[in-house]
């Protein structure tokens, strides 16, 4: 394996469509819930321990060799909001395009054939990590980091925050990112014997609700 592959996968410039999504922060900014660096940090922390953990568990399980189609169903079950399901599949399709070109593997090809409309993005991310020879915990790190790095970048654009403050808050969340990635990887290991229900299913209902509202806006900068 090449650890460098993890840097590539986690890089916000990896051309897989993430730049057009705010991870719910555009809606949170509109409601005033996120308005400065501190409130952005609270938002990211909440996302980290809910959606972030759940996505990381799915990514780690895919990287560990779980059946990606079963995981895709599990992702649907953990994503009740239709707008977020649609966004996850669209991003999954975009990630699949990038992954097939950068880390070609038979498993990615099979997924492309089985899910022409796209699988949930964390599943594709996990399979890409697997194709690159990375470990489940690496996939978990990439998923978690993206889950909060995306909103942080979006908030910088939406609120004209100082980008150094955003980087600082991501650094402060580092130890929690470690914990969440480790918990996700651990759950993925347990899911091998205990079944897929061992994967985290933490949710954030407010993100679900505001995502549905956001999808109906006619004027917005981000796709989700």
């Amino acid at each position: 394996m090449s650890r460098a592959a993890l840097l590539l996968l986690a890089d916000g410039r990896f051309p897989a469509g993430g730049h057009a999504h705010s991870g719910g922060v555009e809606a949170a900014v509109a409601h005033g819930a996120v308005h400065d660096t501190d409130s952005l940090e609270a938002f990211c922390r909440g996302r980290l321990h809910t959606t972030g953990l759940t996505m990381a568990g799915l990514a780690a399980a895919a990287a560990g060799g779980h059946d990606p189609l079963l995981l895709d169903d599990a992702a649907d079950a953990r994503t009740p909001a239709p707008a977020l399901r649609a966004a996850a599949r669209r991003l999954g399709r975009q990630m699949l395009r990038a992954a097939r070109a950068t880390f070609p593997s038979a498993e990615l090809e099979h997924l492309a054939t089985a899910r022409p409309q796209g699988a949930h993005q964390p599943i594709v991310l996990g399979l890409a990590a697997r194709a690159a020879g990375l470990a489940p915990v690496d996939a978990a790190y990439a998923a978690v980091y993206e889950n909060i790095g995306g909103p942080a970048t979006a908030a910088v654009r939406l609120l004209s925050l100082d980008p150094l403050d955003a980087s600082g808050l991501l650094a402060r969340l580092g130890p929690e990112i470690d914990d969440v990635a480790a918990a996700a990887a651990d759950a993925a290991t347990r899911a091998m014997t205990e079944g897929i229900d061992a994967l985290p299913s933490a949710s954030s209902p407010l993100l679900d609700i505001t995502a549905e509202q956001h999808a109906a806006w006619t004027v917005r900068l981000f796709a989700s």
Binding site: R13, P15, A16, G17, G18, H19, A20, H21, S22, R90, Q94, R97, A98, A154, R157, L158, L221, F222, A223
Partner: peptide
């Protein structure tokens, strides 16, 4: 996502 040039040049996936 507030970056029109990104969508036509750097990350054309969408």
């Amino acid at each position: 996502g507030a970056c029109p040039h990104t969508a036509i040049r750097d990350d054309i996936s969408a």
